[in-house]
C-alpha cells in the first residue's frame, strides 16, 4: 500500500530517472551525459528512501555523486575536444548495437513479467538500518568485505606505482 504522496514521489522520481537516462544515452554532447548522471543518481537515491533504506540512500548520494560522478566529470572535462560531435554516444556503432538492445529489452521484459514480486502484506515501519548493515558487514559478510578492501588497496598501490614510474622516466630523459 502506498499513500498518494508516495505515489506522487515515485512518479516524480521515475520521471527524473527516465529523463536523465534518456539524456545520458541520446545527448549530442558527452559533457551533458556526464552531468545527467546527477539526475539518475539522485533519483535512485530517492527510490531507496521510498523503500525505507535510509543508509543506502545517503551512501548512494555520498559515493556516487560525491565520489564517482565528480571523478567522471574530471575525466570528461580533462579530455580535449570533448564538446565535439564525433565523441558522442550516438556516433558509436549504432547499427551493431541495435539488435543487442532489442534482445536486452525482450529479456528484461520477460524477466519483469515472469518474476513473482514479493509484496509486503502491510506497510512496515521505517526503522534505522545503519546498525544492522554494520553488524552484517562485520559478522556474516566479513570475508567479502575484507576481500573488497584488499582489492581496493591493491588498486591504490598499483596506481601509485604506475604514476611513480612515469615521473621517473620523465626525469631521466
Amino acid at each position: 500500500m502506498m499513500t498518494p504522496m508516495q505515489d506522487l514521489a515515485f512518479a516524480a522520481l521515475s520521471g527524473i530517472v527516465i529523463a536523465a537516462g534518456c539524456l545520458i544515452a541520446f545527448s549530442r554532447n558527452l559533457v551533458y551525459s556526464a552531468f545527467a548522471l546527477l539526475g539518475a543518481f539522485v533519483g535512485v537515491a530517492g527510490y531507496f528512501v521510498l523503500l525505507g533504506a535510509d543508509f543506502v540512500a545517503v551512501i548512494q548520494l555520498l559515493v556516487y555523486i560525491g565520489g564517482i560522478m565528480v571523478l567522471y566529470l574530471f575525466a570528461v572535462l580533462m579530455t580535449s575536444g570533448i564538446g565535439d560531435v564525433t565523441l558522442t554516444n550516438r556516433s558509436i556503432a549504432t547499427k551493431a548495437s541495435a539488435p543487442l538492445c532489442i534482445v536486452l529489452i525482450i529479456l528484461l521484459g520477460k524477466l519483469i513479467y515472469t518474476t513473482e514480486w514479493y509484496v509486503a502484506a502491510e506497510p512496515t515501519e521505517i526503522a534505522p538500518t545503519t546498525a544492522a548493515i554494520g553488524n552484517a558487514l562485520l559478522t556474516e559478510y566479513l570475508l567479502p568485505f575484507e576481500l573488497a578492501s584488499v582489492l581496493l588497496l591493491g588498486t591504490l598501490v598499483g596506481t601509485v606505482a604506475l604514476a611513480r614510474r612515469g615521473v621517473k622516466v620523465i626525469k631521466k630523459s
Binding site: 535510509d54 545517503v58 551512501i59 548520494l61 555520498l62 555523486i65 560525491g66 565528480v70 545503519t130
Partner: peptide, 16 residues
C-alpha cells in the same frame, strides 16, 4: 537517522 551522512552527502551536490 543518518543525519550526519546526509549533510556530507548533500555537500557533494555543491561540488557538482
Amino acid at each position: 537517522n543518518v543525519g550526519l551522512l546526509f549533510i556530507f552527502a548533500t555537500s557533494a551536490i555543491t561540488a557538482v
